[in-house]
């Protein structure tokens, strides 16, 4: 730097600007984290490789609905491929894959690279941070748990000759569709984030999520067919717990689900869902309270 003659003690004006725009506050900070989380989950603004799993599972999850609608348009009411009740159970294998691949993106590296202080130096509490991440993952999961069923619904309404009549026929199923989608998304997001928040690296987080769902479903499936354990079996598999809750709230049983083999009050599934969700939130609260920034 060339020295120019200045009086001693002068503070140079090197051009820092003030920010005079609107300050968005806590709400804005939370929405920004939700937005960034959604972009991270779907790989927007990232390389093609990080889009493969989220968009691949989304397409695979929606494909059966599209095929079912196409068949309905072409062949009429002859074949009933998927019902609203069983759709999520049928695509169930995709949900853990999506969560295992994308939930670690949200939380693991923030802890690993110790950037949480940067979040908390904004008008954002620890609770806000966790809530924003949960919100982002739940919203993203709705694209798997709600969108395909809505596609199926829309297709059924539009495929008929009498659209108005079809709407009034099918509208009664909407609360069940939306409710089921919301429950699945929120519970899966809570469970996934809780597991991921404990892992040191993204790959381990993915492995842990997969392990929980794989082992739960395998053991649940085996015990469902073993004489004395049919009543316990569904509670080992998070997806079966949610299926039971769906059946409790909205009715309609799924043939392949271990819920059908079990003989317990359906309200127990609701309780189990609540327990899983609250347990996951407790883990998150414990984990993020303990992290020092």
């Amino acid at each position: 730097m060339s020295a120019s003659p200045e009086a001693a003690g002068t503070i140079y004006d090197i051009g820092y600007r003030h920010y005079d725009g609107p300050r968005l506050g806590r709400r804005g900070a939370v929405m920004a984290v939700v937005g960034a989380g959604l972009r991270a989950i779907f790989g927007l603004g990232r390389s093609g490789r990080s889009k493969v799993i989220p968009w691949g599972t989304l397409i695979l999850a929606t494909m059966p609905a599209i095929v079912a609608v196409a068949i309905r348009v072409l062949a009429g009411d002859l074949i009933e491929l998927y019902s609203y009740d069983s759709y999520l159970w049928q695509i169930g294998a995709l949900l853990p894959i999506f969560v295992a691949a994308q939930a670690p993106e949200l939380v693991v590296n923030d802890i690993r690279h110790r950037v949480l202080p940067l979040y908390f130096s904004r008008p954002m509490s620890r609770f806000d941070y966790v809530a924003a991440k949960l919100g982002a993952l739940s919203l993203a999961l709705l694209s798997l748990t709600l969108l395909p069923v809505l596609v199926l619904f829309t297709g059924r309404v539009l495929a008929g000759d009498d659209v108005v009549g079809a709407i009034s026929n099918e509208a009664g199923t909407l609360p069940a569709i939306v409710g089921t989608g919301l429950i699945h998304a929120l519970v899966l997001a809570s469970l996934g984030l809780a597991i991921c928040s404990l892992a040191a690296r993204r790959a381990y987080a993915a492995g842990a999520v997969l392990a929980v769902f794989l082992i739960g479903s395998v053991v649940g499936e085996i015990l469902a067919e073993a004489g004395g354990f049919a009543d316990v079996a569904p509670f080992l598999n998070p997806l079966a717990i949610m299926d039971g809750t769906r059946q409790w709230l909205f009715g309609g049983s799924v043939a392949e689900s271990p819920v059908r083999a079990a003989d317990v009050p359906l309200a127990l599934y609701g309780l189990a869902t609540l327990a899983v969700t609250l347990g996951a939130w407790a883990v998150l609260a414990f984990r993020y309270r303990r992290i020092s920034v």
């Binding site: 799993i53 790959a203 492995g207």
Partner: peptide
């Protein structure tokens, strides 16, 4: 590790 996990779940599973 990630690719291996995906292989285990998708292909083997």
């Amino acid at each position: 590790l990630i690719i291996g996990l995906a292989y285990v779940v998708v292909w083997e599973g």
